[in-house]
Design a protein around this nucleic acid. Sequence first.
DNA 1: CACGAGACCTGTTCGC
DNA 2: TGCGAACAGGTCTCGT
Length: 278
Amino acid sequence: MPELPEVETIARMLRLGGREQPALVGRRILGANLLWERTLAEPSSAEFVPRLTGQVIEDIGRRGKFLYFRLTRDWLLYHLRMSGDLLVRPARTPRETHDRLVLELDDDIQLVFNDARKFGRVWLVDEVDRVVGSLGPEPLDEGLTAESLFSRLHATHRQIKPLLLDQTFLAGLGNIYVDEALNLAKLHPLTPANRLTMEQAGRLLESIRTVLRDGIARNGASIDWVYRGGDFQNYFRVYQRTGEPCPECGTPIARIVVGQRGTHFCPQCQPFLFLNGG
DNA sequence: CACGAGACCTGTTCGC
DNA sequence: TGCGAACAGGTCTCGT
C-alpha cells in the first residue's frame, strides 16, 4: 500500500489542489455514503453520517501513513493500507467498482475512498491522538537526530527490517522504502538493531530521508494495477528487482522472506556480519 | 519481549 | 486455454 511518500503526495494534492483538481480546504461536507461497512473503524455507521454532515474541512495533512482532515469539530482519518486511494470526482459521478466511502462536498465535488482489497479504514474522532498517538517519530522531522535514533536502536535486539516497519518505532516506512533505505545504507535486513554502530545509525537515518525525499519528489511509486501518478518505481534500486544487477556493484539482487514480507537486498553491498552473534 | 502464523480481502501473474 | 498457487505498498491478534 501507499507508504509515506504516496500518502504525502495525496495529502498535498487534496490540500493544495492539482491539475484540474480543486483544493478541498474550506469545502463543507454535505453528506456521506458508506458502501462497505467494515471500512469504518469508528464511530458506528449510525453515528458517522449525521455527525460528519455540516462540518467544514479546515486542514489536510499526513501523520505516518495516515491522512487526516481537521474538521470544524472532529478529525476524519484515513489509512489506505494496501490498495486504498482517495479521489476527487464531480458530484453525481457513477459509482466505480471498489468505491467504499463517498463524501458529498459543496461546489459539486465528491471525495471518494476506493479500496479494492477492503483493508483500508476510516475514523471520525474528536481527539486525533486516539488514532495516531502511538506512532513513532516522523523520519523527516528535523527533531529526530542520529543520536536519538542510535539510542533507540540499542534498546532492542530485533532485526532492523521488521523494526523499521514497526510504526511505533518510526512512522511512515513500508516494505518498499525500508528495502531501498537499507540498501542505500549498506545494511543487511537481518542485522540486530543493537549491533549498529553510531556511524551506521547516522548513515541509516540519512538513507531513510534520502529515499523518502526522492519518493516524494517523484510523487511516490505506482506499481501493479494501483496507479497513482507517481513514477518512483522507475528508480528502485532493489525492490522487486530480484536477479537484476545491483546499481552499485552489479551483483544480482537477492530475495528472502523476513517477517512474512518479501525482502530485496544486495548480498555484496549488504553482507550479514553477525553470524553466531559475533 | 520477540517471533511466526493466520486473518482480513481482491486482483494479477506465474507455472504446469 | 485453464486452473491453482503465489504474490502484492499493511496491520492486528494469537500462540509459543
